[in-house]
Design a protein around this nucleic acid. Sequence first.
DNA 1: TTGATTATTGTTATAATATAACATAACATG
DNA 2: CATGTTATGTTATATTATAACAATAATCAA
Lengths: 165, 165
Amino acid sequence: MQATAFSPHDHTHCISSAISHAQSLCANRGVRLTPVRQRVLELVWQSHQPIGAYELLASLAKEGFNSAPPTVYRALEFLSDQDLLHKLESVNAYVGCCNPDTPHQGHFLLCQICHQAQELDSQYITLALKLSADQHGFEIQHHTIEIVGTCQGCLDKSKTPESVL
Amino acid sequence: MQATAFSPHDHTHCISSAISHAQSLCANRGVRLTPVRQRVLELVWQSHQPIGAYELLASLAKEGFNSAPPTVYRALEFLSDQDLLHKLESVNAYVGCCNPDTPHQGHFLLCQICHQAQELDSQYITLALKLSADQHGFEIQHHTIEIVGTCQGCLDKSKTPESVL
DNA sequence: TTGATTATTGTTATAATATAACATAACATG
DNA sequence: CATGTTATGTTATATTATAACAATAATCAA
Ligand SMILES: [Zn+2]
Ligand SMILES: [Zn+2]
Ligand SMILES: [Zn+2]
Ligand SMILES: [Zn+2]
């Protein structure tokens, strides 16, 4: 099992890969990854911690971009439409999508210690949702699945007191 | 399979049962279901459609209750702490809880046509979440599971054109 | 190339949701 | 009653998000 967000990894690779992926994907789709859109995507990918719209806005402002709310919300809307990021409803914040090629809703693990989010695409969960919906004759359009808890890394740290190190 | 919210039923029974249940539950727990708290709970139970804080506030104001935001948010916090309602994060609105005796997070079906919400407690979903989390060594504290789509009643209506009626 | 068309961005204002901070009142208990 | 605690009142403000319209930039057909 390789978790990405929660385990040590070369995150510069996450960023560069996400951006180059987004560039080719937008080119293929005939949509424009404009400077502000790309910069918002880069900012979202700065870490695996979901980031809020107004935090993005502050960064854009520092960098000389236009800094009114509609600017960032439009960029977020575009990136979301292109499946390049997801909004986490329970924290009003945004994370980069790991798999933008195929439209999907993710399932998310959110660590309340390190505040990182990991997107899953669990067939278990997808099937369980479908079974439950079917039982009620309910036709699913989309869903919000956000699981809050403690990630393995943070659990390990909490079980290793300073004195033992 | 008996769905409650989405199928015709005596909703006055939902309301009175929720309120009397809440009264005895608060008495047992030694907490106070004050007038404003009970009224908020009644308003939440007016229908199976999740209701927003400011809509509650407007109703309270009409009825002569204090009508500043903290009033309703405090009542919502109390009711949530007592497991008498849930917040639906994806719509910033609140629904009465069907099973306040045992602390839990619900799973919700939200119909985008009739805007009603049905709380589930699906063992399928609970198990799937646990399996997925375990695979990542992730310890679950709580979750947000909100499934948006079309309920059976609204599907039936859409499949029965006017001309046939 | 020009002009029409559409997509994108700029700008101002405001809506919608939620909380901080502190004062007052009600309740419980000895 | 005196006291500590819980609940409510009040004012202000924080946070998140969108409406509305103007200006600019890209696209494309003639
Ligand atoms: Zn990374
Ligand atoms: Zn963590
Ligand atoms: Zn009902
Ligand atoms: Zn419906």
